[in-house]
């Protein structure tokens, strides 16, 4: 069931690029095409090996020519961007995400060779609110639909993809709703956030954070590309970290900000080019989000290798984050107090 010609969008970024590299290493796949508006960084390009890079904008009808000429049979749409900063502003990001997907789907609908479609979506389609159940499964409809940003883009894109699936019932469509990625190599809003020495949090709230290790994310994408497993799947690691707990594990200092001041503080961080926090990410920091991954295990047949805690620890180790307060310091204080108490006896 291995595909013969795969087209991967968003190859200049971590997931798309490394997925193309993994697919190129698979001898069963004849051809791997990588599409993006900017060329991948040189080391990523080297890793991609025999995968071919096509510099094209998916908003441009040229993409349908690429698909037709190469007779692509599997399309992996991994270019959804969550970060307005790196994609040139929110308006451009929305254009790339939504209009780009529409164009890509239009091109795929015309191409008779396409047999399989894989979408990298996000669990933020469930939103984040105090009125939602503690765990989302794939059928949950959120109480508060995401009102803007990346999450809204993802909701719209999933809607277009459902329409595409109705018009082309012969194409097997896989939607992967990923939780937040973490790992030593990937660069996301969250990895930058936890790298700050002093981490702003929302006063009085402690979000439940569920993560996914970058390697697990790549493995899931690769499995969805090379096997025929249609459906919608939540993809996330086991277990939950509280935001406060994660900050302590990284040896960072939390800075609780009253919710009224969250807006100005996040603007400050944006203008200082530290972390680009959108409003829906601030909501995520309030309430967090945890998804049920039973369907991923049973139907998709994948169990993440890293738990949330292990993935987070791997990120802290791999980035060599120097803790502001290290566990050793706390342990030495503990030993000191105990020794002092014993000497008093």
């Amino acid at each position: 069931m291995a595909p013969s010609v795969v087209l991967v969008t968003g190859v200049s970024r971590f997931l798309g690029g490394h997925l193309a590299a993994r697919l190129a290493a698979n001898p069963d796949i004849d051809r791997v095409l990588g599409v993006d508006t900017v060329p991948p960084p040189r080391d990523l390009l080297r890793r991609m090996g025999r995968a071919e890079f096509v510099r094209a904008d998916i908003r441009n009808p040229l993409i349908s020519k690429v698909i037709e000429h190469a007779s692509v049979d599997t399309v992996v749409h991994a270019s959804l961007s969550a970060n307005p900063g790196s994609s040139g502003g929110r308006a451009t990001m929305k254009e790339m995400n939504v209009i780009g997907t529409m164009q890509l789907l239009a091109a795929c609908q015309k191409a008779p060779t396409v047999r399989r479609m894989v979408l990298k979506s996000t669990t933020s389609v469930y939103g984040s609110s105090p009125r939602d159940p503690a765990l989302f499964d794939e059928t949950t409809t959120p109480k508060d639909l995401p009102s803007g940003g990346y999450a809204k883009d993802a909701v719209e894109i999933e809607g277009y993809l459902r329409g595409f699936g109705r018009r082309r019932p012969d194409v097997s469509v896989t939607v992967l709703r990923f939780s937040n990625f973490i790992g030593p190599r990937i660069d996301t809003v969250l990895t930058r956030y936890f790298a700050l020495p002093v981490i702003p949090t929302v006063l009085g709230y402690d979000a439940r954070v569920q993560l996914l290790h970058e390697e697990d994310a790549l493995a899931v994408l690769e499995r969805a590309t090379s096997h025929d497993i249609p459906g919608v799947y939540n993809v996330a690691a086991d277990g939950v970290l509280l935001l406060s707990q994660a900050i302590r594990r990284a040896g960072r200092v939390p800075l609780p900000v009253p919710s009224g001041a969250v807006g100005p503080v996040s603007r400050l961080f944006r203008s200082a080019r530290l972390v680009d926090f959108s409003p829906e990410q601030m909501r995520f920091l309030n309430f967090g989000r945890v998804v049920d991954t039973g369907r991923l295990r049973r139907q998709f047949g994948f169990t993440p290798r890293w738990t949330t805690t292990q993935a987070f620890d791997d990120y802290v180790r791999g980035r060599a984050l120097r803790p502001v307060i290290s566990a050793e310091q706390i342990e030495s204080v503990e030993r000191g107090v105990l020794a002092a108490a014993r000497s008093l006896r």
Binding site: A134, L241, Q245, T309, I330, E334
Partner: peptide, 17 residues
Amino acid sequence: AFLRRRLTGDYTVDDFG
């Protein structure tokens, strides 16, 4: 030891928090 576990985040919470 309890304080140290709290300060280093060395504890587990379930999916519900």
